[in-house]
Design a protein around this nucleic acid. Sequence first.
DNA 1: TCGCTCTTCGCAATCGATTTCAAAACAGCA
DNA 2: TGCTGTTTTGAAATCGATTGCGAAGAGCGA
Lengths: 343, 343
Amino acid sequence: MKLGQATIKDIARELNLSASTISRALKDYPGISDETKRKVKEVAEKMNYRPNAIALSLRQSRSFTIGVIIPEVIHFFFSTVISGIEEVANSRGYNVILSQSNEKLAREISSIETMLSNQIDGVLVSYSKETKNFDHFTKLLDQGFPIVFFDRAPAIPGAINVMVDDYQGSFDATAHLISQGYKKIVHLAGPQTLKISIDREKGYREALEKNGIRVNPAYIITCPLGTLEESKELVTEALNTLPDRPDAFFSCNDIGAVGAIMACRDAGLKIPLEVGIVGFSDWQFCSMLDPQLSSVAQPGSLMGARATEILLDIIEKKLDPKTMEQTLILETKLMERDSSKRF
Amino acid sequence: MKLGQATIKDIARELNLSASTISRALKDYPGISDETKRKVKEVAEKMNYRPNAIALSLRQSRSFTIGVIIPEVIHFFFSTVISGIEEVANSRGYNVILSQSNEKLAREISSIETMLSNQIDGVLVSYSKETKNFDHFTKLLDQGFPIVFFDRAPAIPGAINVMVDDYQGSFDATAHLISQGYKKIVHLAGPQTLKISIDREKGYREALEKNGIRVNPAYIITCPLGTLEESKELVTEALNTLPDRPDAFFSCNDIGAVGAIMACRDAGLKIPLEVGIVGFSDWQFCSMLDPQLSSVAQPGSLMGARATEILLDIIEKKLDPKTMEQTLILETKLMERDSSKRF
DNA sequence: TCGCTCTTCGCAATCGATTTCAAAACAGCA
DNA sequence: TGCTGTTTTGAAATCGATTGCGAAGAGCGA
């Protein structure tokens, strides 16, 4: 008796039949007598038979597994995306292999390599902050390998992206601050390697211009690290040194906004009376803060779900990447809370 | 030319050699001339050859993949655990297949089934709140299949568990509240199906007793849902109806503690002057709240890492589950912050 | 009893890589 | 030239499941 699982051969031996008959009986193929089918299924049940998906994968060159490459699992936003991915993949019979790049290009590349070795049917990617060269993706795309990018869209022509409307979300947030009477609005920007950072900054700029406010370059402060400490420090510095003291901060992420809250509070400024603050992402904790933080909600779970649907449709040839819409943009929603509401 | 990847046979055809020679040449087996090795490697490189892990898995009955079953990815704590798992698994050459049960027993079972079909080498499990019967796990354990449970330890003799010291963490938190002069401490407990809930309640009870405070059953309030609204409501009710008004709340999780903060604030109580509050898990946002929330930190990433190390050691037969320590308990750390510090 | 048809099942190849066993090829030496 | 020994390579089986094709057996009419 083997230690492992019962195979189709074990059943065949037990019943003095051939492996082919067992296979057909289990799948209710025509040409197998009902009596045989009954016996086969009975023995399969008894032996606790479970088909070997690996053998199937090898034969069909299909693994029913998709890969997900993400910068960091710990980010709340990404965890919601994963949740959406897992949900859809699972319901359509696919497994999800996960790998985090930790924002390192080298790990991103090696992750893809091992996943390809494991014959994944497709991959969902949100690339790392380090990634500036996309050859490892274009090579695959050229071969027709199914890839869908989410959240962070690379500068690759023909690539399929699912993202939120960073520009519009940013525009809305800035316009909201303006409508609340804030005039000297600082933008805490993200690393310029990410398209989302650029789009968010653009939304900020255009909202100002459309409302007749001149964009002051000194009011755009880049936070490369994205940590709480960094933004707190930079905001404190801005409050102390900028000739025209800012009266609002729009951060490209929630952590930065929290840093701004802290810095303003330390500076003795009242929120939202004297300073307005808006974040981006609408992390869970926004409504738990004091004051509750206004933020731009990104539909993370939906993004994961949509990206997965598209990927699986491509894999199953229901969609041709060449003929389809290249970029799916999901709407954001501004959550107006205490940190930015004066009226 | 095939669409897919180049195989060993393609290289063989190209060089007029046999598949066996290619295989040996690529692995630097003895008995292959240096000249042949050189040519084979050159062609392999040129054809962008990548070994098919599926074929290897089939042959070796080893997939170098482990499964992870988790209630919900979105939970901050679990996302840190996943991060630790992924880290260790990756560095030891294993893939991670992820599945969330959404706290549903049925999905937990079906996830395990598909993972087994996919020939995973072992599995890490944190079981769902619905799971009261562990047959689907014991069956596997009896077959000698490698399983390591984390965070939530099932009542299965011989099972290997990695968890935090819920009892001690809870004891410390309660003792801390007592040391700060709080006397009427309410415990917001979790669902009694989870061992962690029971342990945390036990730590609370014994800390009280050891400090000569009688345990008041009315002071133990169970929060089955674990939502913010629920705890807010229950705390408000407790403040209004309990004959002896509580002066502190120790919640078995952070969400509950936030609900308590809100309820107390709405009731006009000053934190920490009039009411002390401590949570459990030390989620990211604890230090961003106002007042900053004291909480018991659980080493999530470490837990994931340790559990994975043990699992891989068992898989690789470096460890025998029968002879080893059954339960690994990781230390918690009380993060004392403003919400509970009167002095 | 011989055909023929239809039902029911088995053989063998396939997927990609590894590995055992054995066979070539070639060198050295008498 | 013939024999032994070494080096280098191949054929075939294996892992588990599927499937086209062929074959055996039953049943039936002539």
